[in-house]
Design a protein around this nucleic acid. Structure first.
Lengths: 222, 222, 222, 222
DNA sequence: GATGAATGAGCTTTCATTCAT
DNA sequence: GATGAATGAAAGCTCATTCAT
């Protein structure tokens, strides 16, 4: 009597992945997550099937459900691993930021995200699938925005928090723009547009962080 | 004893909506498209069901299939109507463009698209649903880009076609960015970010079209 | 929110029955095949419904599809089991053949097939249903013809392969004729006609195999 | 509230085709019957659809139902026209019969039916479709058998009616055999088998009608 | 822990037939 | 008579989830 799609309230149901106890279990979970990544990337969240994911991982469905009690939980767990590595990336960038000027920073940000997406093609469909209600998906954008803001703050410590968040939002959107163009493989002027976007970001950062940067000796005001 | 499925010859599969021939049919089709719009907007393409769409339109499921032989065709037909009105919007803008300066143009573009999306909330999910193969969905971005390029060319006739397309791509992405932020209703600094994006677009247009505008008397520079 | 139908990638469509791995599964499959046999026999391939077959077997529809991913596959699997037993029958006959004269052989062939059809009433409708494309249905006639040819060759080893195949075809048709008449229950002279057909077959075999039989001591020639 | 499949009892429903009143109507009916023939031949009775038949005939469904209130009625009407021409064929043969010897008769019978089937490819599927309950389909075999018996009686007037029917049944089956082989286009030895079958029929007729023929001066002997 | 059979609501789609225009 | 829209039962098939072994 399963209710095909129990996205919502479900009382005593686990909403988190179960941590494996043994070494073998850890390998299983890794294989399952990887398989899920491939499946979600290929078909999107809705069309992906638990059976197919298990098959890809060389496991039985029962085994899959042992660790991930729900399709949503599985997607969520996958998203969390992605998020962890992504945040790591930004943390590294945060340390570098003070030493970079606006152009250099712009030249790092978009490519970082593009590379990440290429390495984890299931990230986008999972974040964008409508109507999914698990915690992770919901806040991804916010969390990334905060990471970006942290990078900007690292570079311009005197900037107010609110302003940093606004800047971060703009930067985030410019990054998304670059990714979107990157994905349009049949578009002839792809490279040119990405360059242009990077220049836009550089000039925006210059303006926004300009006089606030720790290493700025120039007169603010641009 | 109808053989429900395709065991047999399955050639002449229609892939387009059937045009109604009677007045009543015309009304039906309109009601169905509207209902589809609501359903797709609420649930996205995958989760939307044909049964529910028919019900919303006060039609029987058979009636729905009389005009739209598959869910894909239905989505596609809907998308085409959206596209038609959207293109109309850009055509109007094209006529206005020569009289506007960069800032004014920027101030028109994003809001136009935001308003359109608000009026047709099913547009986004349909365009973004992965893996749908009908013609309309595929080329929407390109077609819109061309429209934007046409607007830019109207304003700066001396601009080369290729460059107009690159600019258009940047502008398109900035518009999408504005929409995305507009949709994040829980984000405190929404309005500020949208303003900022508009300023970015204005400055980008200034730089990109600057000396090429028909009404420019200043020295180009670029 | 599973995407019920094939909007998306639809590669790995299985086209064969899944073999059960557990004892319980084996029982299920047997029950399902038997139920399918009854249903197909009663209604023919087209009018038979998967739901009804599942119900007859006391299984859920899902259970049926677990093992037989389409109606065609199910029909095919059933046909294969029939074919296996039928071929077994002919193999037994092959061993007996050398010891039988033409009349005795004729007296065995048709009744064998009649008995088989009576025991497996779904065989005929499945073989004759037009337009089904699964492998088994296609070649049934050929395979049976080869079996008959083998029996004839066993009796008349000196016969050329091509000739054996021609004879086999004639014999096969005479068998089918007997079956057809056997099935016309309202025909008053059924028995007489079947007798007559048997005599025709006997005389045909006499002529065709006559001098070639291993036990023939008469002058060949005919 | 149509009951999808009302093959059976349906009270006051018409079970016969309505005769067209005007000239135009007659053309319509002819076109519809022809279209039905094509559709049934291509897909078989079950998979054929009324909509498609109407379309093939360049008519609307409404128009189709004006003349044929049911799919069964349509099939039946078609079958009747086929039967009429087929019976005409046998009547011609009946006149020729007395002048032909057994071999010549055999040489006429099978080819006649083969030609007929080639000209009317929908005949077979309609006659063989299981479970259809309309009058025509049911008795086709009997009627044809009677026609064949009439031909035989014309040749051998002294034969008893019952015996003629038995012979007719055998001949009928041999004809069906020839047709079946004729249809197996991929069978290398087709022609040889058909020849063989004809010889079998000739020899059978010789034996069965032998001494009873009006022109026979030979000793009967059977 | 692993396995794979079982479940059934629910989805898309079909089509014979009716009937207002 | 012709047309074509309307109807809805019913079919094939899917898949998240459960659970006995």
């Amino acid at each position: 009597m399963p209710s095909q799609n129990a996205s919502r309230a479900n009382d005593n149901a686990r909403t988190d992945a179960k941590a494996p106890r043994r070494e073998k279990g850890r390998a299983r979970v890794a294989a399952l997550l990887e398989a899920a990544g491939v499946e979600f990337a290929e078909k999107g969240f809705d069309a992906a099937t638990m059976t197919s994911i298990a098959a890809r991982a060389g496991a039985s469905i029962g085994s899959l459900y042992q660790f991930f009690p729900t399709k949503d939980v599985l997607a969520n767990a996958l998203l969390e691993t992605y998020l962890a590595t992504l945040i790591g990336e930004f943390e590294r960038l945060r340390e570098l930021a003070p030493a970079l000027d606006a152009a250099a920073l712009a030249h790092r940000l978009a490519p970082a995200l593009i590379a990440f997406r290429a390495a984890h093609p299931a990230f986008a469909p999972l974040v964008e699938t409508p109507g999914r209600s698990l915690p992770a998906a919901a806040g991804v954008r916010q969390r990334l925005r905060r990471e970006i803001a942290a990078v900007l703050s690292a570079k311009a410590p005197r900037m107010k928090a609110a302003h940093a968040l606004v800047c971060a939002a703009v930067v985030q959107q410019l990054m998304k723009a670059a990714i979107a163009i990157h994905g349009e493989t049949s578009f002839t002027h792809r490279a040119a547009v990405i360059d242009e976007l990077e220049r836009v970001m550089a000039s925006y950062l210059e303006t926004a962080l300009g006089g606030l940067a720790p290493n700025s000796e120039t007169i603010s005001g641009v």
